[in-house]
Simulated assay, not measured.
Amino acid sequence: MTEPALLRVMVVDDEPLAVERLQLLLARLPNVTVVGTANEGEAALRIAEAVTPDLVLLDIAMPGMDGIDVARALSTSTVDPAIVFITAFDNFAVAAFDVAAIDYLMKPVQPERLGRALERARAHLAAGGGGSGRAAAGHVEEFWVPDHTGLVRIAASDIDRVTAERDYMRLHVGPRSWLIHRTIGKLEAELDPAHFLRVHRSVILRRDTITGLYRDETGHWTARLRDGGEQRIGRSYVDEVKRLAGR
């Protein structure tokens, strides 16, 4: 059996005992090395820059710069490690997961669950992903979104359409949907344009869900969708949508 790839891990938690416990758990796992620890956000950024970890196990609730702020800063840095959030709370604000993460762990962290999180991180890194859940070309591959049980992972390729609801975007996957805190402009930039197309100021469609286009008697263009629905196309988006049909 092939040994797992070496995973360079950094642990960030404001509770020294929590850091120590994670270090002990990580020491029992094969091909894992702890390259740094930190007890607060500013130090975490400095140390991460110096040790360049593959993965950061990151507590969310910390005084001052919390885990979400640290994750945002890391995602725009030259380090950009994979992120696994750690939390003692089982209720999450939508805005807290504006930064994509590979996984999240509940305290107290269980050895088996930690092992699965590291396996997921290895697979993600092997596929060329970074901490922001992006493909090599810079487009988001997945979203972690809150629901009543905690978090749900949604692959970008599974999203049928996106609709805007004020400061939130609703991701539609089949009959279900989830909210994330984004502007539609930011989400449009994050999704791969080879697979997604903005057709209205408040709607993005996955290209392969569009089965036809027609213009009504008033001159408005509408897209027919694979699920039998329809979507009116905004006037400023008509030319781009018509290129689907080579027009």
Rank of each mutant, 00 (worst) to 15 (best):
H139W: 07
P111V: 00
R134Q: 14
F92I: 03
P146L: 05
A189P: 04
L197V: 06
L125D: 03
G133K: 04
R235V: 09
R215G: 03
A95K: 12
D80Y: 12
A61N: 09
L29R: 12
A117Y: 01
R122I: 00
S75W: 07
V203W: 10
E42H: 15
V162Y: 01
D192L: 06
W178G: 01
G64S: 11
E240A: 15
V34I: 09
V199Q: 08
T52A: 13
E190G: 07
T183M: 07
S202F: 02
H172Q: 04
F89G: 07
V11C: 09
G174E: 00
V12I: 12
D13T: 08
E42W: 09
A5H: 14
E141H: 13
T149C: 13
V70G: 06
I204A: 02
I154H: 10
R21D: 13
I154T: 07
S132K: 04
R198A: 11
M169Q: 13
Y214P: 11
H181Q: 14
A100Q: 06
D239T: 15
R182Q: 14
Q231T: 05
S177Q: 04
T163H: 08
L24Q: 15
A194L: 15
R113E: 02
P108V: 04
A121M: 02
G174A: 02
M106I: 03
G128K: 08
D98V: 09
E20A: 14
